[in-house]
Design a protein around this nucleic acid. Structure first.
Lengths: 188, 188
DNA sequence: AGCATCCTTTTACATTTGTTAAATTCACTT
DNA sequence: AAGTGAATTTAACAAATGTAAAAGGATGCT
């Protein structure tokens, strides 16, 4: 699970003991495509790190399947609104490709915070980065056109287009599949 | 500046010494309506707590003035994408009413984190809450109609309508002023 | 009070996006 | 290879939102 430590390093260097403590509450698991990693309605008790593969956070709005977030290799995925409040989430996590995932127990992680301030700091910084990414995404949805958002996504995550059904991409961009098709047709 | 301590309590109780340390790096200031508290292009070095009054985070997109965020009494306001990265922000903060504001030095606060883990924890929790609020707002922009977003805003911050020009409300909702006018006319 | 400025609404028209349904393409299984 | 179902595109029309300009209202200043 060295990939996880590599992911940590730019945020916060941990000594060996702190590293071991985190590894002790983490397990590497494999999941098949389309597995529901966390169902809608459950409270988030696990933070996931994607070593290999792809996953998404999704929910239902008026019967439509909405993708709120994609995460790929070397990214964290968690439903923060449930993780931080420990209340049930209206969102779920689905695996989109056969994946290798490191699962970190949230309860045991939070318990480590008292004895290992560096671990608390590490995750503070990780989630600060997530916060910043979300603010930037908010700005994108607030004042970029659907076409701008699409082109920006192509730049930021070019491989996503090959790996994910377009219906999920459309929902992520906040538009319909038909609208996305039109945007793609206009470019050719 | 007791209002600040009251704001902290639900997140994390601090002992007297930690409270004093924060108060020592905080100053209460008054600002007139329309003051630019932090200009566009500057790096965030201060976290603001609004004791009384109203402020917004704004930026310019294609010459249009966009409001990204409103904050009123007993709320924190800061451009987190600059605060956490210490890079210049393309956003500014403007005072919208004559206000009393407690300014907390970010550099001195971060310096306190090493000696006072409870202070680090306090602000970790404060910003986790901000993160959650932003995720919820993202969801709102991604899949609620402009009309739904307007009605939700009226519910969540009813006094905002009386206190802020509608042009700022419209920009905050991600629509034009004309479009907001239409939505308001339809309800009557 | 009068003037100037800003804010808000309204109108007319253009553009974008949504909706529904059908047609086409693609992937997978047998 | 054929068949099934999912994914994607296309078409036609409806609805929502944007743009630009004009008209009213409100507010503040002198």
């Amino acid at each position: 699970m060295q990939s996880l430590i590599h992911f940590f390093n730019p945020f916060q260097i941990l000594n060996q003991e702190a590293q071991n403590q985190i590894l002790a509450i983490s397990t590497l698991q494999e999941f098949k495509k389309n597995t529901i990693l966390q169902p809608i309605g459950h409270t988030c008790q696990t933070i996931y790190f994607i070593q290999k593969g792809l996953a998404r956070i999704f929910y239902y709005k008026d019967g439509h399947d909405i993708t709120e977030y994609f995460a790929h290799e070397n990214q964290i995925i968690a439903r923060v609104e449930s993780l931080f409040s420990q209340r049930p989430s209206q969102k779920g996590i689905q695996i989109l490709e056969d994946s290798e995932i490191i699962a970190i127990s949230a309860a045991r992680l939070f318990a480590l915070y008292d004895d290992y301030p560096r671990i608390e700091r590490l995750f503070r910084k990780i989630f600060e980065q997530g916060y910043v990414d979300t603010v930037n995404r908010l700005e994108s949805l607030q004042f970029h056109s659907a076409e701008e958002r699409y082109h920006r996504l192509v730049q930021d995550m070019p491989d996503l287009l090959q790996r994910v059904p377009l219906k999920h991409i459309a929902a992520y961009l906040g538009i319909t599949q038909v609208s996305l098709s039109r945007i793609r047709a206009a470019v050719k």
